[in-house]
Amino acid sequence: MIRLSVLAAGVLVLSAAGCSSVGSQEEAASGVAVRWQKAVDAGDGEAACAVLAPGTLKTVAEDQPCPQAILDKDLPRPGTVVETSVYGQWAQVKLDDDTVFLGAFPGGWRVVAAGCTPQGSRPYDCTVEGD
């Protein structure tokens, strides 16, 4: 029984360790989403493409270089963050007129999909996303 208690305590410690950094991860994810929106709004295609996930970048840059292609997209204006959810390797940042999905990469959060609008029980419809 002692062995089980130690095991249960270990699980709790691991769970706590997993949860302890969620707050800072939410801040980091929402910070990237806001930066992304501001870069697009300011016409800074280089900065906007710099925070895209590789798969998304590849799709956006299929027909023309990313910095131009990204500015041609009909993306919402910057807004304030309404809600941020972080689960494991994924984050969702809801802003006034946009929802951005981000993935965890070694250098930090990157935008996987943006310009997303809800479709009820179906997946969000996104203006920018990978294949």
Partner: peptide, 17 residues
Amino acid sequence: AGVAAFNEEQLSERQDP
């Protein structure tokens, strides 16, 4: 743990948690 794992999948499929 299940709700967190489920929500991770939800986000990867562009759905709400």
